[in-house]
Amino acid sequence: MLSNQEIADDLLAQYGDKIAGFEEHHEIMSVFTTVETAKPMIAYLYNHPTFKFQYLTDLAGIHYPDNTGGELSVVYHLHSWTHNHRIMIRIFVPIEAPDVPTIVDLHKSANWMEREAYDFFGINFVGHPNLIRILNIEEMDYFPMRKEFPLEDATRQDKIDALFGR
């Protein structure tokens, strides 16, 4: 049985100060790293003799408007079927230049996942073979999942968290 501590120790030995930290949510560990390290790390975990994180479960974009200098985040969900172990690798990129190296050459399944993240968050996957919108229309000139596009009338007063003691 693989433990998160083992993976964390191994990654720290390999990447050291490139790793910004670890978090654990419901037994799934998140590794925070830099944009440049993410792809080599995914390749390293893919080719690792014991870990074998060879399945890309999902790739999610997230927008954190308050995180200055790293507004957009990409989460890679990796799964090792040999050990039935999941981890996430997270990176942050500034919204002015959201350039992330593509991982399509490692996982073909990342093709549409990256297109989806581009479509909704505007993350620019450098080296992607066909980075165009996938679910929205091509003429769209904004990235709809960013937080500056509220779904409802922002002047509505009846759903403010503060009114309910939060």
Binding site: I62, K108, W112, K159, D161, R166
Partner: peptide
């Protein structure tokens, strides 16, 4: 901690395998 999810990502199996 708010009333709605901050972000909800759904892994939809069709979306991923249909690209093949």
């Amino acid at each position: 901690g708010g009333r709605s999810p901050y972000r909800l990502k759904m892994r939809r199996p069709c979306f991923i395998f249909y690209q093949s």
